[in-house]
C-alpha cells in the first residue's frame, strides 16, 4: 500500500513540478551577446501581411511563427498593439513553417519566439514561448521605447 501511494504521489508531484517549471521558464527572455544583425528583407518579414524591411527608430520586435502554432496569433495581436501604442517601435513577423533553415540558423525550437532588436537591427534579447509582458516592457524601456 505504502509504496504504491508514495510512487503515485511522486509521479503526480513530478507532473506539478514540471508544469510550474514550464510556467516560470515559458516566455522568459535572455540577453544575446552576439549582436547579430537581423536582415528583415532576407527573412521575408512582414507586418500584417505587407513585407517590411524597416527597423523601428528605437527598437524592433520580430516574431517567428508557424502555421501550426496555437498561441502565435494571440501574441501577434498583443505585439501589434504595442507597436501602435508605443513610439519608435516596429513589429515584424516571420513565418518559419516551411523554413526550417531559418529555425536552425537562429536555434529556434519553439514558436512563438520573439527577438528584440535595437535601433540598428542588432539582436539583443530573445524570448521563447509566449513573452512575459512585464519583462518585455522593461527591455523596451531600456531602449527608450515608451
Amino acid at each position: 500500500m505504502e509504496t504504491s501511494l508514495i510512487a503515485t504521489l511522486g509521479l503526480l508531484a513530478l507532473g506539478v513540478i514540471g508544469g510550474i517549471t514550464f510556467k516560470v521558464l515559458q516566455g522568459k527572455g535572455h540577453r544575446v551577446s552576439t549582436k547579430e544583425i537581423i536582415d528583415l528583407g532576407k527573412l521575408k518579414a512582414n507586418n500584417n501581411g505587407l513585407p517590411t524591411t524597416e527597423y523601428g527608430k528605437k527598437a524592433t520586435l520580430v516574431q517567428f511563427s508557424t502555421s501550426y502554432c496555437g498561441q502565435c496569433p494571440g501574441v501577434k495581436r498583443t505585439l501589434s498593439q504595442l507597436e501602435y501604442r508605443l513610439g519608435g517601435l516596429c513589429f515584424a513577423e516571420v513565418d518559419i513553417t516551411e523554413r526550417l533553415d531559418v529555425a536552425a540558423h537562429f536555434n529556434i525550437s519553439q514558436t512563438p519566439t520573439v527577438f528584440l532588436l535595437n535601433d540598428k537591427g542588432h539582436l539583443i534579447y530573445r524570448m521563447g514561448g509566449v513573452p512575459k509582458m512585464n519583462q518585455l516592457m522593461q527591455e523596451l524601456e531600456k531602449l527608450g521605447v515608451k
Binding site: 508544469g19 515559458q26 529556434i108
Partner: peptide
C-alpha cells in the same frame, strides 16, 4: 497528458518544430 490538461503545455507540440 497532465502537463497538457492542467498547464496547457503540449509536450508533443513543443517537440514538433524541433
Amino acid at each position: 497528458a497532465f502537463l497538457n490538461a492542467f498547464f496547457g503545455f503540449c509536450l508533443g507540440c513543443q517537440m514538433y518544430l524541433g
